[in-house]
Amino acid sequence: MAIHRTESPSTHLSYLTNIPTPSRNAPIKRLSLMIHGWGCQATHYIPLITHLTSHGLTPETGDLFIALDLPGHGQSPKSTLPAPEKGGIAKLILQLCAEVLDSFGQRHDQTETVVYAHSMGIFMALEVYSTLKNVISHAILLDGAHSGESAAEGFDLDRIREQAVQYREVVQDRLDLYFGPRTSKGFEEETREGFARLDFEYALRMSYWYGVFDGGLAGVLDRLEERNREAVGAGLRPTKVLLIQSQEAHGPNGRHGIKRGDVTEYMKFVRSHISEDWLQEWVVEGTGHYPHADDVDEVGPVIEGFLRD
C-alpha cells in the first residue's frame, strides 16, 4: 500500500492519503479523517492506516483516509492560520475535506465520515462534529483528557512567549512520560525530532483556543447525546464513540499508564455525558500516550470491530 502526501491548494495544509488526488475513478463510501494531537504530526497515523488498509479498508471498498498536519505541525505552514488563538482550525479541516471529496465528485452528505483524533486533536474533532453532526458515523478518541469546566485564562501573548521558552527547555525530559515499554525506538525518535522542530509559541497559541473550547466540552457532548437520541427516534444512524485509553493524565501521581479495569478521569467525564448506547471503551496496557502507534496490533482489531458494529 502506498501513502501519498499532498498539499491542499485552498488551505495549504499538508496531508497523507491512501488514494492520490484528484481522482474521479473510485466512489468514496467512507472518509476516515485523522487528526493528531498537540506537537504531533500526520505520520503518527501511518501504522494505523497501514493496518486498516491491509485488513480490508481499501480504495476498492471506497475507503479514503486523510491524515492531516495541523497548522505549524509536520509539513503544514503556520501561515495557513496566522492567529491560532482565535480558532479556525475546524473550518480549515472541513474545507480540506470538502476539497478532497470534490476531487472525487462527491460531498460530505454522500459519504460516511469516521473521525479519528488523538489527545488535543479530540477537541478539534468534536468541533468538527458540531458542524457535521450526524454525518459522522463514528468517532474514535485516542487517549483524551479534560481539564475541567473552569474558564481559560485571558490570552496574554507575552506570557505565552515566556511559556514557550520554558517548555522548549523541558519538553524532551517530559516526553519520557509519554512513551511506554512498547514504544518503538523509531517512533520515539520521530516524535522527539518533531517536538525539537516545533514552534512552541505558535503551538501554545493554538492550545489556548482549545483551552477555551474545553470549558464548553460538556455541552458539546450533551448535544451529541441529544442528537443521537433524535436520530434513532427518526430512524437515522447515531454517531458512535470509541474511547481508547492508555494513560491517566490527572491526579497526584502525574501522567502514568493504566491497566484494564482502570477508569480514568476522562472516561468518567465522557460517561457522564454520553450513554453506553453509543459509547464503547478500550484500555490498552503497556503503551505510552500513543496507543495507535505503540500497539497497532491490538488497537487495529478493536477499531475494526467497532466499525463493523
Rank of each mutant, 00 (worst) to 15 (best):
residue 148 G to Q: 07
residue 250 H to V: 01
residue 110 Q to G: 14
residue 12 H to L: 06
residue 71 P to C: 13
residue 81 L to V: 03
residue 20 P to D: 09
residue 127 E to G: 00
residue 247 Q to D: 00
residue 112 E to A: 11
residue 206 M to Q: 10
residue 246 S to Y: 02
residue 204 L to E: 11
residue 202 Y to N: 04
residue 190 E to G: 05
residue 240 K to E: 14
residue 31 L to E: 00
residue 78 K to E: 14
residue 216 G to K: 12
residue 137 S to D: 08
residue 165 V to E: 15
residue 92 L to E: 03
residue 247 Q to W: 03
residue 197 R to F: 05
residue 297 D to V: 06
residue 193 E to M: 06
residue 175 L to H: 06
residue 1 M to A: 13
residue 237 R to H: 08
residue 279 L to D: 07
residue 94 L to G: 06
residue 141 L to K: 00
residue 60 E to S: 13
residue 86 K to I: 01
residue 146 H to K: 06
residue 179 F to G: 14
residue 286 G to L: 06
residue 265 E to L: 12
residue 191 T to Y: 11
residue 185 K to G: 13
residue 73 H to Q: 09
residue 292 H to P: 06
residue 23 S to F: 04
residue 226 E to R: 10
residue 154 G to H: 04
residue 254 G to C: 12
residue 131 T to R: 05
residue 53 T to A: 10
residue 285 E to P: 11
residue 110 Q to K: 11
residue 269 F to D: 00
residue 159 R to Y: 07
residue 205 R to I: 03
residue 263 V to K: 15
residue 170 V to E: 14
residue 234 A to H: 12
residue 193 E to H: 11
residue 183 T to R: 07
residue 13 L to D: 07
residue 110 Q to Y: 02
residue 306 F to T: 07
residue 235 G to A: 07
residue 76 S to I: 04
residue 99 E to D: 11
residue 2 A to P: 12
residue 118 H to V: 02
residue 307 L to T: 08
residue 141 L to P: 01
residue 42 A to Y: 15
residue 176 D to K: 15
residue 194 G to D: 08
residue 262 D to W: 15
residue 298 E to N: 08
residue 107 R to H: 12
residue 62 G to A: 06
residue 200 F to Y: 14
residue 160 I to Y: 13
residue 151 A to N: 05
residue 264 T to S: 13
residue 82 P to R: 03
residue 269 F to L: 01
residue 144 G to K: 13
residue 226 E to Q: 13
residue 154 G to V: 04
residue 51 H to I: 02
residue 268 K to G: 06
residue 152 A to C: 07
residue 20 P to Y: 04
residue 252 P to K: 15
residue 202 Y to E: 11
residue 249 A to C: 04
residue 61 T to K: 15
residue 222 D to E: 15
residue 136 I to F: 04
residue 262 D to G: 05
residue 25 N to I: 04
residue 146 H to W: 15
residue 8 S to Q: 09
residue 165 V to W: 11
residue 123 F to L: 15
residue 3 I to L: 15
residue 207 S to H: 06
residue 155 F to S: 00
residue 190 E to M: 14
residue 136 I to R: 00
residue 124 M to Q: 11
residue 149 E to G: 13
residue 152 A to E: 15
residue 257 G to I: 05
residue 292 H to W: 05
residue 135 V to G: 00
residue 252 P to L: 12
residue 37 G to T: 05
residue 282 W to I: 00
residue 171 V to I: 14
residue 168 R to W: 09
residue 50 T to F: 03
residue 17 T to C: 12
residue 253 N to W: 13
residue 281 E to F: 14
residue 287 T to R: 08
residue 107 R to A: 08
residue 5 R to C: 09
residue 29 K to I: 01
residue 193 E to T: 11
residue 121 G to S: 02
residue 159 R to A: 15
residue 161 R to V: 05
residue 228 N to P: 04
residue 84 P to R: 05
residue 152 A to Y: 03
residue 98 A to K: 11
residue 71 P to A: 12
residue 60 E to N: 13
residue 235 G to Q: 03
residue 240 K to P: 03
residue 127 E to F: 01
residue 3 I to D: 07
residue 302 V to E: 14
residue 78 K to C: 10
residue 5 R to D: 09
residue 53 T to H: 09
residue 163 Q to W: 10
residue 73 H to K: 03
residue 35 I to A: 01
residue 102 D to A: 14
residue 93 I to L: 14
residue 26 A to P: 00
residue 21 T to G: 04
residue 281 E to Y: 12
residue 98 A to Y: 00
residue 252 P to D: 04
residue 105 G to Q: 02
residue 37 G to S: 03
